[in-house]
């Protein structure tokens, strides 16, 4: 849907002296009704034609009762700079929810379905890829699924300052041992890439495909995650990112490569068939 959503919150994340250019945006309107974890919206940052395109933002939080969605963004270019200046209380043009989100475990146990009822969930995030996974984590916590399904979050960022800033209360609702943090510079947690603790977890004896990995981050990380999952016979869903123009599937600008039914390669639109794809269907190399 295309709607005018009221800006309830639009302010820097984290401590005042360390916002890392990250902002929290809470919108009130009709989008929340239909929003699902892993979906996204596009927002118009200016009534003028510069910038011309809407900005795609992952839905990080959904409160259907209150009619609110939470989005996080990093101020990077002209569009996000203008967005950061939008006053609270004003309205924003929002298109969405868009795309296909994550498969959600059934709220009630369903022994017949393994995907709807995984034995364990691992959420792997790189950098601001955590924002898309927040919506999934929020769903799991809200529906008390974490009582039944062990959920582990693996999250890697550049340094401690980044993690401090991009963290939300959701992570503190998980048992401490179920949150593994990594930094590239070793300033906090595990030093290195998030795929290293993921490999340790997966190699520690998982029950095959009953473990489910959901991941979001840079493409190189997603490729490494899906390759690890395939090596350990674990299914995965990855939330992908690509430059978009329309966000609706019309322009075919944001394609990624997928296996087709005949063993060949086809294009999937990240905005329409994605942004969440199964790790098994994405083709990272020329040959499969």
């Amino acid at each position: 849907m295309l709607s005018q959503e009221k800006i309830l919150i639009n302010r820097p994340m984290g401590p005042a002296h360390n916002s890392q250019g990250l902002f929290k945006l809470v919108l009130h309107g009709r989008v929340a009704e239909e929003a699902q974890p892993g979906q996204f919206v596009t927002v118009r940052t200016s009534p003028s034609s510069d910038p011309l395109l809407r900005r795609p933002l992952s839905i990080a939080g959904i409160d259907k009762k209150a009619g609110e969605i939470t989005l996080y963004y990093r101020v990077k270019g002209q569009g996000t700079t203008l967005l950061a200046r939008q006053p609270e209380g004003t309205y924003l043009s929002v298109l969405g929810p868009l795309g296909q989100g994550f498969s959600l475990p059934a709220v009630s146990p369903d022994p017949a379905s393994r995907t709807a009822n995984p034995a364990e969930l691992i959420l792997a995030a790189g950098g601001i890829g955590i924002f898309a996974l927040y919506s999934l984590l929020e769903y799991l916590l809200k529906n008390h699924l974490t009582d039944r399904i062990p959920v582990t979050v693996l999250w890697g960022g550049l340094d401690k300052a980044f993690l401090d800033c991009a963290t939300t209360d959701l992570l503190f609702q998980l048992p401490k041992n179920n949150v593994v943090l990594c930094t590239m510079d070793g300033s906090y947690g595990y030093e290195g890439l998030v795929t290293e603790p993921l490999e340790q977890l997966l190699s520690a004896g998982r029950k095959g495909r009953e473990t489910m990995v959901a991941a979001c981050g840079p493409n190189v990380m997603l490729q490494a995650v899906t390759e690890l999952c395939q090596r350990f016979y674990v299914s995965s869903e990855i939330c992908m990112e690509e430059y978009m123009a329309c966000g609706l599937g019309a322009c075919r600008g944001c394609v990624c490569r997928l296996k087709d039914e005949t063993g060949g390669v086809k294009h999937g639109r990240v905005c329409l068939e994605g942004p969440v794809f199964t790790g098994e269907e994405v083709v990272w190399h020329d040959r499969i």
């Binding site: 510069d50 011309l52 123009a245 075919r252 944001c254």
Partner: peptide, 15 residues
């Protein structure tokens, strides 16, 4: 990809 690049008041595409 990339097939798109936003430019000042414009869009470069190579679909």
């Amino acid at each position: 990809v990339p097939r798109l690049r936003e430019t000042p008041a414009g869009l470069l595409n190579a679909i």
